[in-house]
Design a protein around this nucleic acid. Structure first.
Lengths: 294, 294
DNA sequence: GTGACGATGGAAAACTGGGACGAGATCCGC
DNA sequence: GCGGATCTCGTCCCAGTTTTCCATCGTCAC
């Protein structure tokens, strides 16, 4: 049953009862309609219509086709409405992926968005690997570091996360604290276990601290933070996470060069849809409050 | 949502995941598939697929289309099976139309046919007007008189109904009976109320009997026969109906020139279907028995 | 480096559109 | 009631255009 257009033509002929009427509805020429019918009947090996001077009358097979095609047309019409409405309404899945380490910032945003748009199902994905927007794995990605430059991706700045060097009070009590980067000797540091990390403060760490001073290494930011609070060493932490924590001591205040810029990345095809736009707006709005605590 | 072929193309792309694979299944070129997708997306104003080096990944809208088109393809496949099987199986409606006056011959045939093929629904139509086969109003028609010569109709001889001139015994007792057509004066006749009737014995009647002798006229053969049995006059009757009726007297024996030939008429498009063929065969078989009683 | 896939531009074919013709049905007037 | 005029509809043939096919190139993944 190849060539669905011929079925559609036959459907209109069956409904109208005349070739001319069907051609009018379909917006094609009479001859085209006749050719479609002839081809379809030839392929099926059965007459779909009885031809006579007043038009075409559907045979039993033709009436069968009529009812099937009727249902099909309705299905396609509904599909079209869904798809066309989809881009203009905020509903369906919204898949967001981000770097590890900031779920505590994002989760309130995501739940707030879901509350604001109840028809949306929010999926929040994080993984060691980067999810690919061009494969359709996510609608929106939050990326960190230097500007992502994948083609077909729309990149917008979100916020610059201020980052400082902190230690637990328990560490300070046991080992004291360096007054500046010149005074690092003898101290232990917490470091990521990723040589290729692009985060600027990690690069700074590699430049100013000997490798054997990095006693605790992990790929997991949450583990890194836990180690810091546990007194395992001096380490970088986002200022917003350190703020107001009485157990943490600021070793070196945040510097601009340590800032971790966050980017909102969307695929160009999905960027202009209302759903994505709504989320991006919602996210930026929420980010204004982040600045207050950092 | 015009152009169903493009939906079919998009459906295959969504299922295969690659343009090449879809083109292979559809039996068209890669470029054609891409153009279909582009056109469909442009019309819908939404991306159906995310393009990347490994193929096309369906978006939310694309997945929606996939499921709808999947159902459509199945529906069409089932439709094709029904239609292709329809011509080769004996099922569905069988619409038979005939002249008035012989339902007592046909009804046993029709019920017998329905018993033989339980999947068939038999509809028997009679009306003052002729049902038109080329309008699809009936599958098989039983016509009387001279050979029907409508185009696109297949005509087969069925049987010649012998017809004689009869009267009721009550009429004979009251008015006597003519010995031959030369002796018709003073008798009353029963006649059809249809000047244009093509039945040969009616033409003979008009030639041999004065108009004022035709005391009872009707368009309904059943009424004509009832009048005959009621003694209203002398009239023509099929020999098979007069046979064995003790209340009827044969005025003039059946003549070849009075014979009413019956024809099986089918539309050329439907004639070769198994259902129609089965009925025609069944009808001819039954007609062999008719000859015995006429 | 190799293989597969998608994108693009030019030639060919298939499809579509236009118009004229014939047939039947309807309408109208006589 | 009948006959002619008109209208609609389907069919066929030819020209135009869209669509399709083919080949090549660029890109990406393995």
């Amino acid at each position: 049953m190849e060539n669905w257009d011929e079925i559609r033509t036959a459907f209109q002929v069956a409904r109208m009862g005349t070739v001319s009427g069907a051609a009018d509805v379909l917006g094609v020429h009479h001859a085209t309609v006749i050719r479609h019918i002839d081809a379809l009947e030839k392929r099926l090996g059965t007459r779909l219509f009885q031809r006579h001077a007043r038009g075409y009358t559907a045979t039993e097979a033709g009436r069968d086709l009529l009812s099937v095609a009727q249902a099909t047309e309705e299905q396609f019409a509904q599909l079209q409405n869904r798809i066309k409405g989809q881009g203009e309404t905020v509903q369906g899945e919204l898949v967001v992926t981000s770097i590890a380490g900031i779920p505590d910032l994002l989760v309130p945003v995501l739940t707030g968005f879901q509350t604001r748009w109840p028809a949306v199902i929010v999926r929040f994905l994080t993984d060691m690997r980067l999810f690919r927007l061009d494969y359709g794995e996510a609608h929106v990605a939050i990326r960190a570091g230097s500007v992502p430059e994948e083609p077909d991706n729309v990149v917008q700045p979100l916020v610059r996360l201020k980052t400082g060097l902190y230690a637990a009070k328990s560490y300070a009590a046991a080992h004291g604290l360096p007054a500046s980067e010149a005074d690092f000797a003898g101290h232990r540091f917490i470091s990521p276990d990723n040589e290729a990390s692009r985060a600027p403060f990690y690069r700074w760490l590699r430049d100013h601290v000997a490798a054997d001073q990095m006693g605790f290494r992990t790929t997991e930011p949450a583990a890194s933070e836990a180690a810091l609070r546990g007194g395992a060493g001096i380490g970088f932490l986002s200022a917003y996470r350190a703020a107001g924590d009485p157990d943490l001591v600021e070793v070196l205040a945040p510097r601009v060069e340590w800032d971790s810029p966050l980017w909102i990345v969307t695929h160009v095809d999905l960027h202009r849809t209302r759903k994505v736009q709504a989320f991006v707006t919602h996210l930026k709005e929420a980010a204004k409050d982040w600045r207050l605590c950092s």
